[in-house]
Simulated scan of single mutants.
Amino acid sequence: MNGTIILIVVLYMLLMLAIGYYSSKKISTNTDFMVAGRRLGPLLMAGTLAATEIGGGSSLGVVANAYGSWGMSASWYIIAMGIAFVILIPLAPKFRSSSVKTVPEYFRRRYDKFSGGFSAIVMMAALVGLTAGQFKASASILEVMLGLDYTTSLIIVTLVITVYAVMGGLWSVTLTDFIQVFLIVIGMAIAIPFALKLAGGWATVKQTVPAEHLSLTKGIGGWGQIAGYVIMYVATFSVGQEAVSRYYAARDGKAA
């Protein structure tokens, strides 16, 4: 096992925990914990929203689909997210002006206790599955990097993420999100030339990969399917706690 890789992974996890501890010192009220004291500016907003949607599914999942039948059109999984966020720009100040901390709280205030409770149950069920998927993806990466068995990797990932999230609330999650999305984007950009070199260069890729896999529309099923993804993301980002909570945490409507 490469000692340098182990050191990098350990330092990374310690950094995440340190951020959680640092953020815990900023927590004095429920608002601080749930919506980071409503002090997120545009840069942190962009970072945490991007990291919320660009995680295990948007990296390992997209790669798996690209190697399957989707090819290059798997990129629409991410592009459609970007389009959805642009469409939501006019609604962002309205999210912020609602002055709530959670989506169920909004439903409770707007309608009644039953609506709030029902929406909380529905969202919990969805978020449990989403969180499990992120944990599994992270554990798979840790398994490969450190040579650990999958179960051990999953336990480590779950403990580290849970600890820093519980310690610092959304403020901790925002700061770690910002670092993680930076590492994901920069890391993948750095990896591209190495991957192409290992594959024998772009010319070799074009000769080897079926032409339809290099299309941006064929693998995914055409423009109708792409439009469906955009509509789905707009709908989920409008009511999903994982996304809307970031808008609630914005400094003001303009930042949102």
Rank of each mutant, 00 (worst) to 15 (best):
Y111C: 02
A211H: 13
R96M: 02
T162S: 11
L17A: 08
A199T: 01
V144S: 08
A132C: 06
V157E: 07
S69A: 09
G71D: 09
S75N: 06
A195N: 07
T52W: 02
G55C: 03
L7Y: 04
L43R: 10
G20F: 00
S28H: 14
Q134F: 15
S75M: 11
L142H: 09
S23E: 00
A46N: 03
A18P: 00
V10F: 08
A249L: 00
V173G: 04
E242I: 12
V163G: 04
L7T: 13
K254A: 13
G222M: 03
R39C: 13
W70P: 01
L146M: 10
A243G: 14
Y247Q: 05
V63H: 08
A120R: 12
Y164H: 05
V157C: 12
N65T: 12
D177P: 15
I8Y: 15
L17P: 02
V35R: 07
A195L: 09
M145E: 04
V128Y: 08
F194W: 09
V63Y: 09
M13F: 05
W70V: 09
V103Q: 06
K94N: 09
D32A: 10
I161K: 11
R110P: 05
S73D: 01
S99R: 14
L49N: 02
M124D: 07
A256K: 07
L142E: 11
K25Y: 06
I231K: 07
I161C: 13
V234W: 06
V239Y: 00
G41E: 01
V244E: 01
I192A: 03
V86H: 07
A51R: 09
S172V: 02
M145P: 05
K136I: 11
M45S: 09
G116L: 00
S115R: 06
T102M: 07
S97V: 03
A51I: 06
I190V: 14
L214W: 10
T131G: 14
A80V: 12
L40V: 06
A132K: 08
G200Y: 01
W76A: 12
V86E: 01
I27H: 07
Q134I: 15
L17C: 07
L88A: 02
N30S: 12
V160R: 06
T208V: 06
T31K: 15
A250H: 01
T52Y: 00
W76D: 07
T158N: 08
G47M: 06
A256Y: 03
T217N: 13
T4A: 11
N2S: 10
